[in-house]
Amino acid sequence: MTWFTSGGEYAAHRPTYPAEIVDVLRAAAPDGEAAVDIGCGTGQLTVLLAQEFEQVIGLDPSEDQIANATAAAKVAYRVSSAEALDVPDASASLITVAQAAHWFDLAAFYREVRRIAVPGAALALITYGVVELDDDLSERFDVFYRDEIGPYWPAERRHVDNRYADLDFPFEPIDAPAVTIERSWTLQQFAGYLGTWSAARRAREAGQGRILEQIADDLAPMWGDGRRTVRWPVTILLGRV
């Protein structure tokens, strides 16, 4: 069976963030004036921030991601790198990075954070870890993640696996509660998500795309035709700029 669709599927298959994460971020910010979401992709977090902030700017270096970003009131998208932000000085009450900080030149990025932050602004680096499946699925999936797709992950993936514990973060910490993303998905939806991984793209480029089809085929008898609960533990590295 063919489980994976062609390109342009990031917005369709990536999980969105739980609403409570926005409450955490708003509580950390000095006011609800302006939030800047960096490495925003297609806007999974960006649009949620508009529920609590008067102005939200989503920035991403990829023109394709910005072209496919979800439109929302109070949200403006721009093509911009993390190391040279297209944002005025002292204008951001909250600065967020979701599932992208491990790709940045952090020293250059942090200089830009300090430039655009208002006094007392909050910075949040957010990542969700390795997906968690029900026990009867996890053994086969763990082999796939570790041994089959594992060699195709870029070196930066180790920061995600470590839940950003080893990422440089030179800001006064703010406590953030544990948050979990949870979805009820069919196997087709789960396979679509796997196809958005950077490791999946590299495996295909290496002519090894069959390992993606194989994991879906192997999970199918256990998964069944219905839905299964899929979970991602979320880490919020939160600090005062």
Rank of each mutant, 00 (worst) to 15 (best):
L106G: 02
A101N: 01
S91T: 11
D134F: 02
L106C: 03
V79P: 13
L123T: 00
A107N: 06
E132Q: 13
L137Q: 10
Y110D: 13
W103S: 06
R111M: 03
A71M: 09
R114Y: 01
E139S: 14
Y77N: 08
V143E: 14
A98M: 06
N68P: 00
P119I: 10
L106M: 09
F144Y: 13
D142E: 15
A90C: 12
L85W: 11
V118D: 03
D105V: 05
D89W: 07
T127K: 03
E139Y: 00
A84R: 13
A107I: 09
F141Q: 02
E112C: 07
S91R: 11
Q99G: 01
V143T: 14
D135I: 12
A121H: 03
V131N: 02
V130W: 00
A67G: 13
R115K: 11
L94V: 12
Y77A: 12
S91V: 10
Y77F: 13
Y110Q: 08
D105H: 07
D135Y: 03
T127R: 00
A92N: 00
A90S: 12
D89A: 15
K74Q: 09
I66M: 04
F109V: 06
V113H: 08
G120D: 01
V97I: 09
Y110A: 03
R111A: 13
E139C: 06
A98G: 14
W103A: 01
T96C: 11
S81L: 05
T70D: 01
A101G: 00
A107E: 14
D89G: 09
D86V: 11
V79L: 12
V143C: 02
A122R: 08
S80L: 07
G129I: 14
Y145G: 01
A101M: 07
F141I: 07
V113M: 03
G129D: 06
S138P: 01
L125I: 13
A82M: 05
P88E: 10
A101H: 08
F144L: 08
A121F: 01
H102C: 04
Y145W: 15
P119D: 07
V143H: 13
S80R: 05
E112V: 05
E139P: 01
D134E: 15
T127G: 12
D135R: 13
I126A: 04
L85T: 04
F109T: 14
A92W: 05
A72G: 06
F141N: 02
G129R: 04
E83Y: 03
V131G: 03
P88K: 12
L125M: 11
S81N: 04
A124Y: 09
T70Q: 14
R140E: 14
D86E: 15
A69G: 06
D136H: 14
G129T: 04
S91W: 06
A98S: 15
